[in-house]
Every structure is written in C-alpha cells, then in structure tokens.
Design a protein around this nucleic acid. Structure first.
Lengths: 219, 219
DNA sequence: TAGTTTCTCATGAACGGTCGGTCGGCCCGG
DNA sequence: CCGGGCCGACCGACCGTTCATGAGAAACTA
C-alpha cells in the first residue's frame, strides 16, 4: 500500500460502469477515472510540479500502476487537452454561431463558451495554464489560438455592424473579454449558489453594459 | 562555456551601475541583473519547469555561479514576488485610495493597478501564475488575496453608494473585473502602439460602460 | 457446484537521467 | 593583492519509465 500523503482519493472507481454492462477482471480504475483525478491534481499543483509519485499517492495506487492505464504523463495531458479543446471548437460549428447577425452570433458564442468552461472546468483550466514547454502543449496552444482568432473575427464583424463601440481597438476588446471570461476557471465553484446560466448572464451583462449599467436598448 | 541553448542572453550586465559609482572586482552580473533575466525565463517556461541549468544557459554563466548571487532558487522567486506585491500594496496606501467617494477611489485603484502591472510586468506575471506549492508561494498568494479583498471592499462601497449596478453579486463583479485586468500580463507588450495610459483608459471604459458603449453620465 | 482459465488491475525494485545545491579553487580588474 | 565573479566536479534526492510478477473477479468447463 502506497503512502497516501494527502487528498481524499481512494480507489472507488470501477464497479459497474455507466452502461450497466459488467466488466471483467480485477476491479479498479479505468482510463477515464484516472484522467479525471489526474487533471484535478495537475490543477492543484501545476502540471510540471506534479510528479507521477504525487499523482499515484492521490490515486491511492502505485506509480507503476498508472502506466497500465496510460502510456505516459504526456499522454495524460494530451487526453485532457483534447477534451477541453473539443468542447470549445464544437461551439463554432453550431448553426447559431455561423449564421445571423454578428452581434447575436457573438453573444451565442460567449454564452456557450462560459457553459463549456463550466461543464469541463478542470480540463479547460489545465488548458488555460499551459506554458508551451513540450510539443503536446504547443499543439494545444495553437488550437486554442485558432479558436481565439475566430472569436476575434466575430467581434470585429459585430463592431463593423455598429453593434459594438468603436473607440477601443478590437484586439484590445478581444483580449480583455477573453481575460474576463477565462478567469472563470480560477474561481468558479460548480454546485454553489451561482448557476452556470446566471453566470453567463452576468458575464454578458458586464461585458456589454458595464458596471455603471444603463439598461441597454438591445435589439 | 555552457551550452547556451536558446535566448538572446549574454552577460552584458554590470560595467557601471546606475548611480555611477564604479564597482570593484571582475565585471559580470549582480543580483538585480540576475533577477531580471531569471524572472523572464521563469515566465517563459513556468517556475517549476525552469531548472537552474536552463537558467544558467540563459544567463550565459554556469549553474554554480548563480549561487554566488542568490542563495537558492526559492530566494530568486521570493525577491521577484516581493517586488510585485510591493507595487500593488503601495497603491492602497496612497491618499487617493483612502479618502473621497468610493467610486473615485475605485477608479484610482484600478488605474494604478493597471499601471503597476505594466511597470512591473514580468514580476506581476510571475505572481499571477503561482500555484502555491511551497511556503514562499503560499505567503505570496496570501498577500495577494489580502489586496484583492481590499479592492473587493471598495467595489462593495461604490455599489452601496449607488455608483455601480446592483443586479450582479459584488463578488462576481470583483472576480470578473480582476480577471479582465490581470489578463493584461498575458498579452500586453510594452513599447508597442498601445500606451499604458491608453490601456488604462480602455480598461476603465470597458469595465464601467461596456461594449455597447452608451457614453456614461459620469460626474 | 467446483475447479480452472482468462482478463484486468496492481505491485515493488530498479533504470538512466536530471534536479537543486555544495565545494574548493581559478580569474581578473581596482 | 584583495575581493567580487566565475568554473567544473560532485552529491543525494527524486524524476518518468520499465519489468517481471502477483492478486482477484468474471467466464468457461466439467
């Protein structure tokens, strides 16, 4: 039995899977449950500062057992980042994001972005803290940059439409807007009194109407 | 001669110090110049992912030479964080932050915060990315939290005064506002076309009047 | 039903390598 | 010749990863 330094951890993974089909073999973790916990630990200590030993302690299994579920530490990261990026990228593929007034498309994308941040909170958190030290990280950063650029284009379109103020450089607007939204991963706690729906409302209100809050003559 | 992997680095530090007083001994780095470069490297790779070897390469000197200027890697971090936190904390001590209408005090603090972020950009960047893995980091995070709470109190006061909208929880407002401002360290490049003054204006405009931008009837 | 097989999950020792840090001594300008 | 600046060799600890093997529950056989 490993040292079990901190954390609530414990095995408590397998048993019967969601689809109800009984699994063969010795019960324990599967890849998904390892990934979920790993991402949490990565977020608590930072990816680089998390050793496989610390991770093993948090899982309640030995270091080497981790390698039964995933080929390497990097693959663990890759799986997590794919999940985060997949969620974001799918937003831009939805019909509400591709047709209609730029202003409405922008609001849709922002609301959905907030929703994805919340739904996949730990995964997106990990994504937003990358430094680009490895090839895996750089690939993920590039995909994220592509997403950002597309939203930036949407902001520019809304501005050209006359829906947004014109006295601030759209690049500055984009960055401050992303700064505000992305900060959610640093403080939002699911299950609290602030619902994801309400959070999205607040973000939209604050972004479009500001703190002084003169009710906007939208639409 | 060390490997000199990346970076522009090179020694080029000492010579004659700012006060003009000639220094004795062999010319080279002093603690300040080591610190400046170290903070840059920490920000590029992340503090944990930066080994003393990598740091030495970037400085153009050997690993052991670093220990002539600073007792440990942790001290390097501590020096940097003190500089960042000192800048922020001094804002709240100035008279414009302690007396007058809460609304005006808030705007002053926000503008000064933006200014400090820019003036001490790499140092504050390092601060804002901490994970709290060591005692040093946890102490710094605590000081930062104290600063945040004081600004949060200012926001609440301005709200009670009637200067700010009341339909969003002030804690949410505080966090989104900090998210927006703190994001500056992730993208702002000094020396570009966007001056610190203009940046502060844009932040204030966007925070108080929003993207739709109906000219505010301030004062 | 009992025994056996099969499959998955797990273990602990050990690997080459890198980590932060130490030590004793050389270099060199004032 | 003093003193700040620097070096190369080295240390114990820990890193991510591998390997040969054990444990335990479901599935198959008799």
């Amino acid at each position: 039995m490993p040292s079990q330094t901190t954390s609530t951890s414990g095995a408590a993974a397998n048993g019967t899977s969601a689809n109800g089909a009984a699994k063969r073999g010795r019960p324990g973790y599967d890849q998904q449950s390892v990934l979920r916990i790993a991402v949490d630990v990565f977020n608590r200590h930072g990816y680089d500062a998390t050793s496989m030993g610390i991770l093993a302690d948090n899982l309640g299994i030995s270091k080497s057992a981790i390698y039964h579920h995933v080929p390497s530490k990097g693959d663990l990261l890759k799986l997590a980042l794919d999940h985060a990026l997949g969620g974001l990228e799918s937003i831009l593929e939805q019909p509400e994001a591709t047709s209609g007034a730029a202003d409405a498309r922008l609001e849709f994308v922002l609301r959905r972005t907030v929703a994805v941040l919340v739904e996949r909170l730990p995964f997106v958190t990990l994504l937003l803290r990358l430094r680009g030290n490895t090839e895996i990280e750089r690939d993920a950063l590039e995909r994220r940059r592509t997403f950002d650029h597309k939203v930036a284009a949407l902001i520019s379109a809304a501005r050209d439409e006359g829906s947004l103020r014109q006295d601030i450089d759209p690049r500055t607007v984009t960055r401050l807007l992303f700064g505000m939204i992305n900060s959610i991963v640093e403080w939002y706690k699911p299950g609290g009194s602030l619902s994801p729906q309400r959070l999205a409302d607040d973000v939209i209100t604050m972004a479009f109407d500001g703190l002084h809050g003169h009710a906007s003559p939208t639409a």
